[in-house]
Amino acid sequence: MPPPRTRGTALRQRLADLRGPAVPSKALDARALAALAANPGCRRRALLDGAGVDKSSLADALGAPSAFGQSQFAFMRGNAFEARVKADGGAELLRLVQENLDPTAEPPRKALVPDLAAIGPEGRAARTALALREATEARGWALLDHPMLALDVAGSPAFLEPDAVVVHPDGSWTVVEIKSFPLLDGSADPAKVGAAARQSAVYVLALEEVAARLGTTPEGRAAAEVRHQVLLVCPKDFSNLPAASPVDIRKQRAVTRRQLTRLTRIEEIADGLPDGTCFAPDLPQEKLTAAVESVPATYAPECLAACELAFHCRSRSRAEGAVTSYGRSLRAELGGLTTVDEVLAAAHGTAGDPDDPAVAALRRAARLRTEALAAREDAVCH
C-alpha cells in the first residue's frame, strides 16, 4: 500500500484529470457543504464538489442551466452592509456579540484584530489556527475577519471562510454570520434563518477540529470551546443599521456531522469511473452527458434550491420514472418500489408481494378509487 502522502498526491491528480486540463478548481464553500450534507446519498454531487468541478458551467454545457444565484445588486448590498458592521475594528460587531451572547463579560473596548494574510488556502488556514491559539491564550476579545478553516469531507479537504469568528475573554469562540436579509421586529424569514444555521453548523464543525488540536489545559479543561450559539447579524427592519439574533445550531451541527460522515469517500467513487472520464465543460455534449451519467445521482425536489445540476438530474429522474422525483417522503413510504411503473403494477395487482405493507396500501387505494369512480358514474346516470 502506498504511503498516505503518495495516495493523497495521486488523488489530487485524479481529481484534476476529472476537472479537465487547465480547468481551475472551484472552492467548496459552507453553503455547498450544507447542501451536500442534506443529500449524502448523491455520489454525483459528492464527486463533483470534491473534484472542484464548476457545476454551473457543467449545467450550461449539458443544456440544463441552473436558475438560481445572487444578483449583482444583492451582492453589492451585502458587501456594503458587512463593511459597515466591521467598521472601526469591528467595534459594533463585538458590541453585538457581547450584548447577545456574553453579557457578563467585560465590554470589548479594545480588541485584537490579527492579520490573517498568507499564501494559498493552506497557508491562510494555518495562519488562522495560530491566530486563534494566540487570541485564546491572551484571554481577551479578538475578532478574526474572514478566517480560513479546513474541514475533511469524504477524504478531500474543504477550505471554508466564515464572515467572522470572535474569541471571548473566557477563551470560547463564536461564529458570526452577516446576512443582508432584514430582521423585522426582531425576527427574520425562518427559511433564510434555517439556511444560515445549516451554513454556520459547517463552520462550527471546522472550528471544533482546530480547537481539538489545541488540546487541554494543565487543569484538564479544553483549551478552547466552540460555542453552539452563533450570532446572526442582519439589517434592522428596513434600515442599514445592524441588529443581531442568537441562533442555536446544535441540531443542525449534529445532523450535518452525521450526514458528512455517511458520505462515501471521494477516491472510492472516482475508482469506479470508466477510464478517461472527464467533466471539462468544453467537451462535446454527448461525451459530457455520458461522463455525468456514469456517476449515480439521488435526485429529490429539494435539489432545485441547492444544486446547479438539479434540472439535468430531474429530467433524467423523470425519464427513468424514479419515484424520488416526487419527494423523499413518498419514496420512503413506497419501500422497495422505486419506479412509477412498479408502483402502478403493484396497485393494479399485476406485481408485488401482497404481504408488503406498501403494496397492500396501494391496492386498497386503487380499490377505493375504483369504487368512488363507479359511485360517481351511477350518480350521474341517475
Score class of each variant (00 low, 15 high):
residue 1 M to S: 15
residue 3 P to R: 10
residue 9 T to P: 02
residue 15 L to P: 12
residue 21 P to E: 10
residue 21 P to L: 03
residue 22 A to H: 13
residue 27 A to H: 14
residue 31 R to V: 07
residue 31 R to M: 12
residue 35 A to L: 14
residue 39 N to W: 05
residue 44 R to A: 01
residue 46 A to C: 14
residue 48 L to W: 06
residue 50 G to D: 10
residue 53 V to L: 08
residue 60 D to T: 09
residue 61 A to R: 04
residue 62 L to W: 11
residue 73 F to K: 11
residue 76 M to D: 15
residue 77 R to M: 11
residue 77 R to T: 14
residue 78 G to H: 11
residue 87 A to H: 12
residue 95 R to K: 09
residue 96 L to G: 07
residue 97 V to D: 00
residue 99 E to D: 09
residue 103 P to V: 08
residue 104 T to L: 11
residue 106 E to A: 11
residue 108 P to Y: 02
residue 113 V to G: 00
residue 114 P to M: 00
residue 117 A to C: 06
residue 118 A to Q: 06
residue 118 A to H: 01
residue 127 R to F: 13
residue 130 L to G: 06
residue 135 A to D: 09
residue 138 A to N: 11
residue 140 G to L: 06
residue 144 L to F: 13
residue 144 L to C: 06
residue 148 M to R: 10
residue 148 M to H: 10
residue 151 L to W: 05
residue 158 A to T: 10
residue 159 F to N: 06
residue 159 F to Y: 15
residue 160 L to D: 03
residue 164 A to T: 09
residue 168 H to I: 00
residue 170 D to M: 00
residue 170 D to Y: 02
residue 174 T to H: 01
residue 179 K to I: 03
residue 180 S to H: 14
residue 182 P to W: 08
residue 187 S to I: 08
residue 189 D to G: 03
residue 191 A to Q: 13
residue 192 K to L: 15
residue 201 A to V: 07
residue 201 A to P: 04
residue 202 V to R: 00
residue 203 Y to S: 01
residue 205 L to A: 05
residue 211 A to P: 08
residue 216 T to V: 14
residue 219 E to Y: 04
residue 219 E to H: 08
residue 220 G to F: 09
residue 222 A to K: 10
residue 223 A to D: 07
residue 224 A to L: 07
residue 234 C to K: 05
residue 235 P to D: 01
residue 241 L to V: 13
residue 241 L to S: 13
residue 241 L to K: 05
residue 245 S to Q: 08
residue 246 P to N: 03
residue 246 P to L: 03
residue 250 R to W: 07
residue 252 Q to V: 10
residue 254 A to C: 06
residue 255 V to C: 03
residue 258 R to C: 09
residue 262 R to T: 05
residue 264 T to W: 05
residue 265 R to T: 06
residue 266 I to A: 07
residue 268 E to T: 13
residue 271 D to C: 11
residue 276 G to Y: 04
residue 281 P to S: 02
residue 281 P to I: 07
residue 283 L to S: 00
residue 285 Q to R: 14
residue 287 K to N: 04
residue 289 T to D: 12
residue 291 A to N: 08
residue 294 S to F: 09
residue 296 P to H: 04
residue 298 T to Y: 13
residue 299 Y to S: 03
residue 306 A to S: 15
residue 308 E to W: 14
residue 315 S to F: 03
residue 318 R to K: 08
residue 319 A to I: 00
residue 319 A to E: 13
residue 320 E to G: 02
residue 320 E to L: 14
residue 323 V to S: 02
residue 324 T to R: 06
residue 326 Y to C: 05
residue 330 L to C: 12
residue 332 A to H: 13
residue 332 A to Q: 14
residue 335 G to F: 03
residue 338 T to Y: 01
residue 339 T to G: 05
residue 342 E to Q: 15
residue 344 L to P: 05
residue 344 L to W: 13
residue 347 A to Y: 02
residue 347 A to R: 02
residue 348 H to F: 12
residue 349 G to D: 04
residue 352 G to L: 02
residue 356 D to K: 04
residue 360 A to N: 10
residue 361 A to Q: 10
residue 363 R to Y: 11
residue 366 A to D: 09
residue 368 L to W: 07
residue 371 E to I: 03
residue 371 E to N: 15
residue 371 E to T: 00
residue 382 H to N: 09
residue 382 H to C: 11
